[in-house]
């Protein structure tokens, strides 16, 4: 039942049932725990990762569906927190409890790939992850800042 996944540019051999959700393969098999479990039903977005550049909820995706694709987790954005979205997040001191922020950041990265200069309406439409601490005010400002940093 072993298979391999390409995560953050590294091939990992995985010994798990192929129908295991990608989230749990990332966290427990590979040991990349920055991706979080929140609901298990694809609702909250804490488990968001990028698959071939698109934001995907990994708790709801069988790991076998990601074979051969390019998976990016929060650990793969940069080695030192220097990705423009991470820089903007620090500048605006966005996280509170921080549990959802890996997912928020990856959702923002995917948004900026598609719309390098997003409007507030774009942000409203694309940022669909839940934050129970309610950090949306700073997330919005940080996305605008990240867009400027990328330009």
């Amino acid at each position: 039942m072993a298979f391999t996944l390409l995560v953050n540019g590294v091939q990992y051999g995985v010994d798990a049932e192929p129908e295991t959700p990608l989230l749990w393969v990332l966290r427990d098999s590979i040991g990349l725990t920055g991706t979080k479990y929140g609901c298990g039903i694809g609702q909250c977005g804490a488990c968001t990762v990028l698959i071939d550049g698109l934001a995907v909820r990994s708790c709801f995706l069988q790991a076998s569906r990601a074979i051969g694709k390019k998976i990016t987790t929060i650990e793969g954005l940069s080695t030192d927190g220097s990705h423009p979205v991470q820089l903007a997040w620090k500048e605006f001191d966005v996280p509170q409890c921080g549990y959802c922020q890996s997912g928020q950041i990856l959702a923002a990265v995917a948004l900026l790939e598609k719309q390098p200069k997003p409007t507030d309406a774009d942000i409203d439409a694309q940022m669909t992850n839940a934050c129970r601490c309610g950090t949306y005010h700073r997330i919005r400002q940080a996305i605008h800042r990240a867009a400027a940093l990328r330009a």
Partner: peptide
């Protein structure tokens, strides 16, 4: 003052109980 935990929480390094 900015918060000490924020840099850890934007890289996935912050360890929660679940991690």
């Amino acid at each position: 003052q900015k918060h000490f935990d924020v840099p850890l929480k934007v890289t996935g390094e912050a360890i929660y109980g679940i991690d």
